[in-house]
Design a protein around this nucleic acid. Structure first.
Lengths: 335, 335
DNA sequence: TTGAAAGCGCTAACAA
DNA sequence: TTGTTAGCGCTTTCAA
């Protein structure tokens, strides 16, 4: 391990000057800088970030707190897409990404403690249960945070324009002539599940469609099985809906599966529209019509917001990202 | 920021004793320990990992080097599943996961330098291009590494039993009566693409089936489009294969799409078998028969191998994980 | 333009 | 069982 002291000895300059040269400070002569840089390279010098962080208090690390109920962790394509976009953006600005767990070095720690212990500069929170005690502790602290797919008056947040998304879905189905529209909603424990359910109901009103309680079914935590089971309930009704809007694509695929099993066809008998625009939409049969969430923009802007907060340029931002209708093959005009 | 000095002053014990109490050393009296712990808690003491790492040289951090050509980064479900399993395992042993990029703090660094600067304890490498200069530098260093889905005589590695996987695929198709079996292979740049192509050919031999060059088509980097385009080429042949083995599930789904587009049916006209067992297999039509790679075991064991290496218990391990045939609906006996 | 001294927060020898 | 001293590798005053 070469240190700046080794370089100091080898070049005859003081450690201070070596440090300055290495960090490209202006108060070192060009000549000295070149000598030091050359020697450092020869000696294979590699800095030690911990020593540096200890004194500068800046770790160039952003934490990622990923905690969701589907319990498939990183396998969830929607969150993954956001994380990927977030990661690209923060990395290009020189930050590393560190996963924040509840354990560290074999000891139990809270999320907030973990962030402080590691000296990270900020944290992005992706969670399906924002009422978790530890998450609340973090949100109530003055640690730089951005919440994804949530809202909160203490911290910055970013999510899709679900008001518009739900409206677009209902409007599209309405324009195809559907009047009996059901909704498989995501668990009311979740921000997205709640908002989309409310906005679905609001959108019905806008088109003067009645709210029918039997047409509102809980699809759980946005999974295939949740959608499948919810659709089965809908299929037991006397008066079947002609279209179903699901709060997530996985649930839509599950619903389609239940419909097929019953011997009915999508979209001939029942139209289905999803939410998210996961890759899978293109690969299922029929290809899924859906509301696209722009994961690229969500991740990218989450990074901007967080870094601005870290740099103390901005205190708090709430951002809403546009959605769009993606028409494929799972909806059809009513006969 | 409370430090051990603050606690030292508040309790009257020396910083050393405070440190020992906080770290649960045995040479502190129980009474003293309790006093210190109580005070620490009162004062809201939270340790500083950087100061600790600086002296102990152990960061309780594992790097993850994720670099693949499909260029969808974390969105790839196969690698994600492995990372998720790996993450769970290392976290439960007290390690954090840090993504290793090529930049740090705004400066360009190589992967190896990045690992050293951050003082991480080890790194897991997931890459589709192991011949990258920087990857080679890392592999040739004495930094603790585990390669996923690759082999290398310098470092530990773990991957699926592709020899058996390809055999199982061919055996299954053979048992259904198929004799004209094509293979859409993954790019020869990749470890998996190469091995599976070779083992497909070896398996043909075992069943005395001829190797037909036109039946071997490059599907690129395991993508839907790659499989789609490769299948289109196969469909132009005079003498169509009755079954196609693809080196990845995405390519299989792409191939199915091309077949349907041509007006043929899967599995009635052409049987398709994939590789990976991604979630998507269950959701496409027909549900995809495939060779399952055990991502849970790969991730879990990768963690074990790496941690054993970090703890200097074992120098190097090469591990091969069993695969299995998962029969669904995309293959059919030949008439 | 350069360097001496101090210290970030912690742990590890060693002595008491 | 407790404390003294030194130092991990670096940056930051401040003086020369």
């Amino acid at each position: 391990m070469t240190t700046i002291y080794d370089i100091s000895k080898a070049t005859g300059f003081s450690p201070t000057t070596v440090s300055k040269a290495l960090n490209d400070y202006s108060d070192v002569s060009e000549k000295t800088k070149q000598i030091i840089l050359k020697k450092a390279s020869e000696m294979g010098y590699i800095p030690n970030s911990h020593a540096r962080i200890l004194i500068t208090k800046k770790s160039w690390t952003i934490g990622i707190l990923f905690d969701e109920k589907l319990n498939i962790g990183m396998k969830h394509p929607y969150f993954n897409a956001i994380i990927e976009s977030f990661k690209e953006n923060v990395e290009s600005r020189g930050y590393d990404l560190l996963f924040i767990s509840k354990d560290l070095g074999g000891n139990r720690t809270t999320y907030l403690d973990h962030c402080i212990i590691r000296g990270i500069d900020g944290v992005i929170i992706i969670t399906s249960h924002p009422n978790n005690e530890q998450i609340i502790e973090l949100i109530n602290s003055d640690f730089p945070c951005v919440l994804i797919d949530n809202e909160c008056n203490r911290k910055s947040s970013i999510h899709s324009d679900d008001v518009r998304g739900c409206y677009l879905a209902v409007e599209y189905l309405y324009s195809l002539g559907h009047r009996k529209i059901a909704h498989i909603y995501g668990s009311k424990d979740t921000f997205a599940g709640n908002v989309r359910l409310n906005e679905f109901i609001n959108s019905l009103k806008k088109f003067n469609l009645p709210k029918i309680d039997e047409y509102l079914v809980d699809g759980g935590y946005f999974s295939f099985d949740g959608g499948y089971n919810a659709m089965k309930k809908l299929l037991e009704l006397e008066d079947l809906p002609t279209a179903v809007f699901t709060a997530g694509d996985f649930m839509a695929v599950g619903a389609i599966s239940a419909i097929k099993e019953k011997g009915l066809r999508v979209p001939e008998d029942i139209s289905i529209i999803g939410y998210d625009d996961l890759d899978i939409c293109k690969y299922v049969t029929p290809r899924l019509t859906t509301i696209k969430q722009n994961t690229d923009l969500i991740g990218k802007n989450a990074a901007d917001i967080l870094i601005n907060e870290i740099d103390k340029k901005i205190c708090r931002t709430s951002m809403i990202i546009p959605v769009e209708l993606v028409v494929r093959d799972s909806c059809k005009p009513i006969k």
